[in-house]
């Protein structure tokens, strides 16, 4: 593109070599298409084994996002790898560099046409737009309020433990505090997250939620509905000092009846412990 006046354009053999170039191009595009299809097929099968089991719709959406984004990324990555790999195999310097001496031949110049650049920009721009729209849809999804009124649980971090507080477990009942998070299945829940000292991070992978616990502010998470009975974990995901790596709490999603039984027992224990205000 920056050809100088001294060298005329006539000795640039770019376009004269179009026949082998077209052959190469056909071959490399075939490789690219074939490998992309195979890789996407493999990924769709393998991803179900690699991804963890989700317990909420939010987490299912996160997992689906991973699958879709990866499937989209595979052809993009393979485009680069296959073109470069093909060039490496087919277009080696004919005079092998010996004893560290540079090979003497140069390759004919190939310079991007504006059409190629615009096409590339359009494709990457289109992919990019898709990701943004997908993400905006994700934000919109997360902001949806379910019809059923969510249960509110306070999640309070401090160095280095989590305390969960069920403010109004039942009409006229005492608030319940607990070091483990027990939740009824199929019941929407929202966490009011805060911290007593430094930043902590409240994260439940299987629920697809995370939120920093900020000192001085109480901030609600998205509303999630656990759909699976089972054991999960709250992890602290902001470095919070000495025992950060010990700051986790068990999450138990149980049946409605077990939950009520637990709450009943806990409210008695809580009242005896005097931890209620």
């Amino acid at each position: 593109m920056t050809q100088q006046g001294g060298s005329t354009g006539s000795d640039i053999p770019t376009r004269t070599a179009s026949e082998p170039e077209n052959h190469d191009l056909r071959e490399v595009l075939l490789w690219w298409a074939g490998l992309s299809i195979i890789a996407i097929a493999v990924w769709v099968v393998v991803s179900s084994l690699l991804l963890p089991k989700a317990a909420t719709a939010d987490d299912v959406f996160a997992n689906v996002t991973v699958v879709v984004f990866t499937a989209l990324a595979i052809p993009v990555a393979l485009f680069v790898w296959v073109f470069v790999g093909y060039s490496l195999v087919r277009h080696r310097a004919r005079v092998t560099a010996t004893a560290g001496r540079p090979p003497t031949e140069a390759a004919p110049a190939i310079v991007a046409t504006s059409g190629q650049t615009i096409a590339w920009l359009a494709i990457t721009g289109g992919l990019c737009l898709f990701l943004v729209v997908w993400g905006l849809f994700g934000i919109y999804r997360g902001a949806q309020v379910p019809t059923k009124h969510p249960m509110i649980v306070d999640a309070t971090g401090q160095q280095w433990l989590w305390t969960f507080r069920y403010p109004h477990p039942a009409p006229n009942a005492q608030p319940v505090t607990s070091q483990e998070l027990v939740l009824p299945v199929n019941h929407p829940v929202q966490f009011d997250v805060t911290s007593l000292d430094v930043l902590h991070g409240f994260e439940i992978r299987a629920f697809g939620i995370t939120l920093d616990a900020n000192p001085g502010s109480i901030i609600p998470t998205e509303v999630v509905t656990p759909r699976k009975i089972g054991d999960f974990t709250v992890r602290c995901v902001e470095l919070c000092g000495l025992y950060h790596s010990y700051m986790w709490a068990p999450v138990k999603v149980v049946s409605e009846s077990s939950y009520i039984a637990w709450l009943h027992a806990a409210s008695h224990g809580s009242a005896q412990g005097g931890s209620s205000t």
């Binding site: 277009h91 080696r92 390759a107 990457t124 721009g125």
Partner: peptide
């Protein structure tokens, strides 16, 4: 990712039909 992609386009295109010396 769009300007990053442009840089990669140029890198891939530079490899293409070069006389590649695998140093």
């Amino acid at each position: 990712s769009i300007p990053t992609g442009l840089i990669f386009l140029a890198i891939v295109g530079t490899f293409w039909r070069g006389r590649i010396w695998r140093s």
